[in-house]
Design a protein around this nucleic acid. Structure first.
Lengths: 232, 232
DNA sequence: TCAAAAGTGTTTGGGTTACACCCATGG
DNA sequence: CCATGGGTGTAACCCAAACACTTTTGA
């Protein structure tokens, strides 16, 4: 610690200024029970004990190569999961944002994931985690800190991506049918989509491809299975 | 300083972790000589002495209420100007981003402004500032740090906003004609726009309004003057 | 009378919505 | 044979680009 501070004070621009307490917050979303949900952890201690909060952690300059790596480490430590397709959402910071520090910055990342990928027994702090429908999370005095606002932003940004079919993969299973994909998009958007336009728009973006010979069989007509196209 | 660190170490989450060196960088853009340009400062000292860099400054937790206020203060100190319509672009951070610190975070803000508003004699460090056409700034080894990438991002984001006519005001004078507005947009986008569609799209967004009785007179047919509509 | 810019109207085409229709399967 | 979801096609519609056209002024 002292070493680090010395290094900072060596130069002219970074004289004696104390630096903000800098954290990562993760907005991990998924479709659970036909509901767009967000992963929350229950706060056991003050401040905001008893309220729910986004999983997060401190940026560790001794461990992380960059902000994205910080986010990945936090995901690994707190959620015991890898998060491809992480997107940086914003940075928030100010005095009295977080009572634990005089001035706190959070770099917020968001991602869609599959709830099924989470192993509920893995991870030391995983017991207090919960998938919370976004509507519930938007209730007053449900969330700690400024997390309600952060989640609202994340949901809006994600919906916008879905709308443009810039599919933020990570919520897709290995194999899926077009119907399943459309249903997932409809749930996340909160409105119905036209089947014909959806399919046309999907294949003109060329993001997914059919798996030859693989069909989903069920109660009704079998459906072609698709997978993500290898990224260029 | 010591006080601050004590506060941070009081709680459990923020034990002994040194925090990143946290700065604000400003990407201020304007149309200068019919060219989309960005405001740069010449670096006199190492690192990157002789190269150009974005104006910026340290986040001062003793002075700034939040990140936006930090950005405003930096704009005031380094550019002697107010910057309404600041937009946060991203946060970048990592080891060896800035040789002055072991781990450096920058919160990047972007804005469009009117070059005419700048008073070249105001501000202590204003002498080393220059409006640089973005094409020049994109040349290799012209910019210090990772600023080339930051400017490229800012230009893309700004163009996208102009494209959707979510006009990032701040580049508009008090009064302007539709022709002037269109020309400015064309320069910033780097392509021509259709007059008819442009006007239709402008007035369905209802962002500006005609000033009754005010016309720009010149060599040709007089043109209606417009101003920004009061924001709701 | 001409050049240049302001301002308006019309045509056209691409893309989306809405909806109809057939297909394949299990029950 | 019917309910259900998969899959395809078509007509109506909307928006915006393209472009033609008129207006107004100074030179």
């Amino acid at each position: 610690m002292i070493n680090v501070m010395k290094k900072i004070t060596q130069n002219s621009d970074a004289k004696i200024y104390p630096m903000p307490f800098t954290r990562i917050e993760l907005v991990v979303m998924s479709v659970v029970n036909d509901c767009l949900s967000v992963l929350l952890g229950k706060r056991e201690q003050a401040p905001y004990a008893g309220l729910w909060a986004l999983p997060g952690g401190v940026v560790r300059i001794d461990l992380d190569a960059n902000l994205e790596a910080s986010a990945q480490r936090v995901a690994q430590e707190r959620l015991a999961i890898q998060m491809p397709y992480l997107r940086q959402q914003c940075a928030v910071g100010g005095v009295s944002r977080d009572p634990r520090a005089p001035w706190a910055v959070s770099i917020v990342y968001r991602a869609l994931s599959r709830a099924e990928e989470f192993n509920p027994t893995a991870g030391k702090r995983l017991d207090a985690l919960r998938w919370c429908p976004v509507d519930e999370a938007m209730a007053d005095n449900y969330l700690a800190f400024d997390h309600q606002q952060l989640i609202a932003q994340a949901v809006a940004a994600t919906r916008s991506e879905i709308d443009r079919l810039e599919l933020p993969f990570g919520f897709l299973p290995e194999q899926f049918t077009l119907g399943e994909l459309q249903t997932a998009c409809e749930i996340m958007l909160g409105r119905r989509l036209d089947k014909s336009s959806f399919r046309r728009r999907i294949d003109e973006r060329a993001l997914i491809e059919p798996i030859e010979g693989e069909m989903r069989i069920g109660s009704f007509r079998p459906a072609q299975l698709f997978c993500q196209k290898a990224q260029t």
